[in-house]
Structure formats: C-alpha cells, structure tokens
C-alpha cells in the first residue's frame, strides 16, 4: 500500500502501470495513485487550474442561471481547454508512467515532451484527443445515469446532456488521460477501490457534488437558480474542486474502506 505522503513524484508512484502487461489476478492494490508532474509549469498550473475554473464558474453564474443551455455550451470549449492544459502540463499521460518511472522523467525541471522520441512513451496529443473522445462518449452514459436518478426523460434533453458533458470533462477526462482504457484500472476506479489522486478524487468529488446538488431542487423558494440543471452543475464544480484538492493532498494514496 502506498503511503499517505504528500503528492509523490510520478517516479515513485508507479512501478507497474504498464496496463496491458499487468497481472490482472490480484487486482486489489495493483493500481497505484498518479502523482502530478514536478515541472515548474506543472506546479503553477496545478494551483492556477482550480482558481481559473472557479472564477470562470462564478463569473458566468449569472448568465448560467439566465440561460443554462447557451451558457453551458459556450463554456464547454473553455473548460475543455483548461482541462486539457491541466492534464497535459500537470499529469502524466496514460502509459507514460512506466517509462517515466524508470528514469528519464525523474529529472526535475526537465520539460515534458511528447514521448514519441523515446519510442516507448505515449503521444500526448493523441492521448488528449482519445481522452476527449472518450469523455464525450461517456457523457452519454452519464446522461442516462442522470435520467435514472430522476432527471427529465423526454424534455430538457440539451440541459441534461450538457450537464453530463461538463461532468465528464471534469470528472472523467483526467482519468482517461492518466489511466487510458486499462480494464483492470477502470475496474478499480468504477468499484471505488482505486487510490485517491487528483483525478480520482476529482471524479468522486464531482459525483458526490452532483448528488448533493439535487437537494435544493424541490424547495419551493421560487428562485431562478433552482432550475434544472444549475444546482447540479454547481455541485459538480464545487465537488470537483474540493475532491481534486483533497485527493491530491491529504487523501493521496488512500483508498475507500481502508486497505481492502
């Protein structure tokens, strides 16, 4: 079990995450937390990213309440760029950790470059693209999940889908970026057994936030912001930011339910 120490450099964190080759037998404990990169840009962006997201959300909250669909649509590219930049700069791409762990990336201060040069590392732009596509696809599943929780089935389709898309971009995009599509890892993530890191913490936070976000909807306060899906979106953003922070710091490496 990894220690609950503060964010470990990528090197220490992963020794075995070359997913295709992992032995899937004793999956528990196999998946290691993913630390953020140690470059100075990574440090800066790691702190700038939540601030940017939060200020974007707060700045656009008024127009979100006024016209949720238009605002969610307009914010989508910005959020995507923010997430992609955060992932590229701060997080190791899927498949890179093995290589990174061995030697080359451990050097502090070295600029992250597309691993194509090594031949073994992943292509950052391809990873980003794949992660984006996967996020969009999984947004459909999230949309279904929202409906199963009681979201309108036939009406408000763009509202629900855009909300799911935001959830996917925040919660799932970093996971797709760092974990790829390794089934063993995703089994642990879906089973909530994966160790906390920024990406997993962010996803858990976003989901819990979305859940809590449903609480004020039934109240008869007749406020504009109670309209679908504003509160859910609030929950997602707040939950994501908190979850990412907690997952990247105090909870780093810990798992749900102790060590089981």
């Amino acid at each position: 079990m990894s220690s609950p120490s503060p964010p470990t450099p990528a090197g220490k964190a992963s020794t075995s995450t070359s997913p295709s080759t992992t032995k899937a037998k004793d999956a528990a404990g196999e998946v290691q937390p993913v630390g953020t990169l140690q470059s100075s840009q990574a440090h800066t962006l790691r702190f700038a990213h939540p601030a940017l997201l939060a200020s974007l959300f707060l700045a656009r909250f008024g127009s979100l309440v006024a016209d949720p669909v238009a605002e969610m649509q307009a914010a989508l590219p910005i959020v995507w760029v923010l997430q992609a930049a955060y992932a590229v700069v701060c997080l190791p791409a899927a498949g890179s950790q093995g290589a990174a762990a061995r030697k080359p990336k451990a050097r502090p201060g070295e600029k992250r470059r597309p691993g194509a040069a090594d031949g073994a590392g992943p292509n950052i732009s391809v990873t980003t693209l794949v992660a984006s596509v996967l996020s969009v696809i999984s947004a459909v599943a999230l949309h279904v999940a929202l409906v199963l929780f009681g979201a309108p089935f036939l009406t408000h389709l763009p509202h629900t889908f855009l909300c799911a898309l935001h959830l996917a971009l925040l919660g799932l995009f970093p996971l797709f970026y760092t974990r790829g599509v390794a089934s063993a890892e995703w089994l642990e993530i879906m089973g909530a057994r994966a160790p906390f890191d920024e990406a997993f913490g962010g996803m858990v936070g976003a989901c819990v936030g979305a859940w809590v976000g449903a609480v004020p909807i039934p109240l008869d306060w007749d406020r504009e912001w109670q309209k679908w899906p504003v509160t859910i979106l609030c929950g997602i953003y707040a939950g994501y930011l908190v979850g990412k922070l907690v997952g990247g710091t105090v909870a780093f490496g810990k798992r749900f339910g102790g060590s089981s």
């Binding site: 999940a145 009681g150 879906m190 109240l219 008869d220």
Partner: peptide, 28 residues
C-alpha cells in the same frame, strides 16, 4: 412542505442511489 410534496421523486432518487452504490460494490 416541499420535500413532503415531492416525496415520490425523492424516493426514486434514494433508490437509484442504492442501486448505483450496490453496482459499485458489486464491481469489487
């Protein structure tokens, strides 16, 4: 009164919550 009035939707919300958590637990 709002939560009492909308109890039917809230029950569905809780039931779905249980279903999802049990699905997550099942993955373990």
């Amino acid at each position: 009164n709002s939560y009492t009035i909308w109890e039917d939707s809230i029950s569905l919300f809780f039931l779905s919550t249980f279903g999802f958590t049990s699905a997550i637990a099942a993955l373990r």
